[in-house]
Design a protein around this nucleic acid. Structure first.
Length: 322
DNA sequence: AAAGGTCTCCGCCAGC
DNA sequence: ATGCTGGCGGAGACCT
C-alpha cells in the first residue's frame, strides 16, 4: 500500500487576496513529483471558509471543500482574510484550534497571522506578520512574541510569514523540511525565484521595510555571480562595495541572512547543479567553472548542501527530466 | 587522509 | 545618548 499522502489545505475566506492564495497553490498544489525520485507530491485541497466565497477581486472559489477539510489536513495554509474583517467566524477559529490540537501543522501568510492569533494559537509563541500591520497586531495580541523584522518564523508546528512575497520563502522552506534541500532548490529554480534569498537562511533575513535598500550590495552580489569561476575572497567583495570588511559582512548578513563566504559557496553549488543538469561536462571541469579549487572540494560542499554527490544528482535529474 | 597554514566570522570596543 | 563604523583577536571553518 502506498504511503498516505501529506494533505495540504489552503483556507480561503471571503475576500482572500489572490497573490497569497496563489503562492500556496503554486508551491503545494503544482505536482512536482517529477523532482522527488518517486515520492508522491502533496495532496492539495482548497477549502472555502464560507460557501460561495470570492477572492478580493471577485474570482469565484469553486471548491467542494469547506471547513470540514481542515480535519483531514496535515498542513493548513491560512492566507489573509478580507481587510475589512476584524472578527473572524467562530466556526473557522474552532476548526483551526481542533486541527492544531490534532497535530496539524499551520502556516500563515501576511495578515493570516491575525486569524491564528484570534484562535489563540499564537499565545506565548514567536510569530511574524506584515510590517505595516505589526503595531496593530501587537496591540490586539500582546501575548504573542511578534518579530516583524524577519521574513518568516518557524515555531515548530506553527509557521508565520511576513509580507506578501515572503509567503514564497516560507512555503519553499516547508518544502525543504518535507522533501529536502535539493527538491526545494529545484522548485525554486522552476519558479524562477531570484537566488539572493538563500533558502535555509531566509528566516533570518531582515524583512525589507520601506527604503531599506540602496547600498551597492546587490551590484556586488551580481558581480560575484558573474565571476564565480574566479577565486573570490571576502575582502575582494568588500573592496568592490567600497566598505570595510567588517561593515560589508554586517550588511551582508542583514540583507541575505548568511555570511559572504557561505553565500558564495551556496551560489557555486547552485551553478554546479545547473551545469550538471544542462551539460555533459565532467565533474572536474564543472568544479573549475564554479570556482571550487578542486573536485574534492566541490563534492564536499555539494554533498553537504544538496545531500547527494554531483554524479548521483546528474543521474537522478536526467531520469526525471527525461 | 591528515595536519598545518590561511581565511572567515563575530563579539567586543573605541571612535565618530 | 544613539547609531553606524571599522579594527582586532580568538575560535573555528576551510583549503591544500
Amino acid at each position: 500500500m502506498a504511503p498516505r499522502r501529506h494533505t495540504v489545505v489552503v483556507l480561503a475566506g471571503d475576500g482572500v487576496p489572490e497573490f497569497e492564495f496563489a503562492v500556496a497553490c503554486e508551491v503545494f498544489g503544482y505536482d512536482r513529483s517529477n523532482l522527488t525520485s518517486g515520492r508522491p507530491w502533496y495532496r492539495f485541497l482548497i477549502a472555502a471558509a464560507t460557501p460561495g466565497a470570492r477572492t478580493r477581486h471577485g474570482l469565484i472559489i469553486d471548491t467542494r471543500h469547506g471547513l470540514d477539510a481542515l480535519s483531514r489536513a496535515d498542513t493548513i495554509v491560512v492566507p489573509p482574510w478580507d481587510d475589512a474583517v476584524t472578527a473572524f467566524p467562530d466556526d473557522v477559529l474552532d476548526a483551526l484550534r481542533r486541527a492544531h490540537r490534532r497535530g496539524a501543522r499551520i502556516l500563515s501568510i501576511c495578515t493570516g497571522a491575525f486569524v491564528l492569533a484570534a484562535a489563540g494559537l499564537l499565545d506565548g509563541r514567536r510569530a511574524t506578520t506584515h510590517w505595516a500591520h505589526a503595531e496593530e497586531f501587537a496591540r490586539q495580541f500582546p501575548n504573542v512574541e511578534l518579530d516583524p523584522t524577519v521574513l518568516y518564523v518557524d515555531d515548530g508546528d506553527i509557521l508565520t510569514a511576513a509580507g506578501t512575497a515572503s509567503g514564497i520563502d516560507l512555503c519553499l522552506y516547508v518544502v525543504r523540511l518535507d522533501y529536502g534541500a535539493d527538491v526545494a532548490n529545484a522548485v525554486a529554480r522552476r519558479m524562477v525565484v531570484p537566488p539572493h534569498r538563500d533558502g535555509g537562511q531566509a528566516q533570518y533575513i531582515e524583512a525589507p521595510v520601506p527604503q531599506a535598500e540602496g547600498d551597492g550590495l546587490s551590484e556586488v552580489m551580481q558581480w560575484a555571480l558573474d565571476h564565480l569561476d574566479e577565486p573570490l575572497g571576502v575582502d575582494d567583495l568588500a573592496d568592490r562595495a567600497a566598505l570595510s570588511g567588517r561593515t560589508f559582512a554586517r550588511r551582508f548578513r542583514q540583507v541575505t541572512g548568511t555570511t559572504p563566504h557561505q553565500w558564495l559557496v551556496s551560489q557555486r553549488v547552485l551553478l554546479a547543479q545547473r551545469l550538471l543538469e544542462t551539460t555533459q561536462l565532467p565533474v572536474e571541469s564543472i568544479a573549475r567553472d564554479c570556482g571550487f579549487g578542486t573536485a574534492a572540494g566541490m563534492r564536499a560542499h555539494f554533498q553537504r548542501v544538496v545531500g547527494t554527490s554531483p554524479l548521483a544528482y546528474r543521474r537522478a535529474f536526467c531520469e526525471h527530466a527525461g
